Computed example of a mutant assay.
Amino acid sequence: MWTIPNIITMFRVVLIPVFVVVYFLDWRWAHEAGAFVFWLAAITDWFDGYLARRLKQSTPFGAFLDPVADKLIVGAALLMITHSYASLWITIPAILLLVREIYVSALREWMGQRGLSATVKVSFMGKAKTTAQMLALIGLLSGMEYFMGFPIYWVTLGHVLLYIAAVLSVWSMISYSLAAWPHLKPSAGDDH
């Protein structure tokens, strides 16, 4: 259980309350610092998976905790941006992203219980959604449009990427559902 990748994943879970507290500090750079903590957590997500494969340290505990840690920190970030921006244009894609995460997690668990997890394994579309989502959240959390006087338009880019992530999210949810559908249809003799 105490492998390097698992320790990194647990570190990501520990970063969640740090991220939330830092973001809401009464301090000029609190949002930027919170976005940095979120970025650090996002980097550890890539790093723990890479090390698990490279060091051959994949474990059942790591396979369980890694996606849970991802969903916890992304869920926290989505709630925080809906609070900070208090805009329908942020809330709608944030809700779509949260709904997709819950739905696909439940679908994967159900399919896994039936030995069919390969049917709904992570696709390229899912990875593209995750990349767009993480970059969108970093931009929106930071609130930065300028850096040292230079325009960088992080917030504007964050809005665009949030919508791209939402579209990819719904698209991938439909794709996973279609792949799983033959196994979800009731067979003869089922009560439900």
Rank of each mutant, 00 (worst) to 15 (best):
L55A: 01
L55F: 12
L55D: 07
K56F: 04
Q57L: 11
S58M: 14
S58A: 14
T59F: 01
T59D: 06
T59P: 01
P60K: 05
P60N: 09
F61Y: 15
F61N: 08
G62H: 06
G62C: 06
A63Y: 09
A63H: 14
F64Y: 14
D66S: 10
D66C: 13
D66G: 13
P67E: 08
P67A: 01
P67G: 07
V68I: 14
V68W: 03
D70M: 07
K71S: 04
K71A: 03
K71C: 02
L72D: 03
I73R: 02
G75C: 05
G75P: 06
A77C: 11
A77F: 10
L79R: 11
L79G: 14
L79P: 01
M80Q: 05
I81M: 06
I81N: 07
T82Q: 10
T82C: 11
H83C: 00
S84W: 09
S84Y: 12
Y85W: 11
S87F: 02
S87Y: 02
S87D: 15
L88T: 13
L88G: 02
W89Q: 05
I90N: 04
I90Q: 04
T91D: 10
T91K: 10
I92G: 00
I92K: 00
P93L: 11
A94L: 07
I95K: 03
I95N: 02
I95P: 01
I95R: 00
L96R: 05
L98F: 10
R100A: 12
R100Q: 12
E101L: 04
E101G: 00
I102L: 13
I102W: 10
Y103R: 12
V104W: 02
S105A: 15
S105I: 12
S105H: 11
A106W: 13
A106K: 14
R108L: 05
R108Q: 09
E109N: 13
E109C: 06
W110T: 09
M111K: 09
R114I: 05
G115L: 08
G115N: 08
L116A: 11
S117Y: 08
S117G: 13
S117N: 13
T119G: 00
V120E: 04
K121C: 08
K121Y: 07
V122H: 07
S123L: 05
F124G: 05
M125W: 10
G126P: 11
K127C: 01
K127T: 06
K127F: 02
K127I: 11
A128C: 12
A128G: 12
A128Y: 08
K129A: 04
K129W: 06
T130Y: 08
T130Q: 13
T130P: 12
T131G: 08
T131F: 09
A132D: 04
Q133T: 05
Q133S: 02
Q133C: 05
M134E: 01
L135Y: 07
A136R: 03
L137S: 01
L137P: 02
L137N: 00
L137T: 03
L141Y: 01
L141Q: 03
S142Y: 01
M144I: 13
M144A: 09
M144Y: 00
M144R: 10
M144Q: 12
M144D: 03
F147G: 03
F147D: 04
M148E: 13
G149F: 08
F150I: 15
F150L: 15
I152G: 05
Y153R: 12
W154T: 00
W154Y: 07
V155R: 07
V155Q: 09
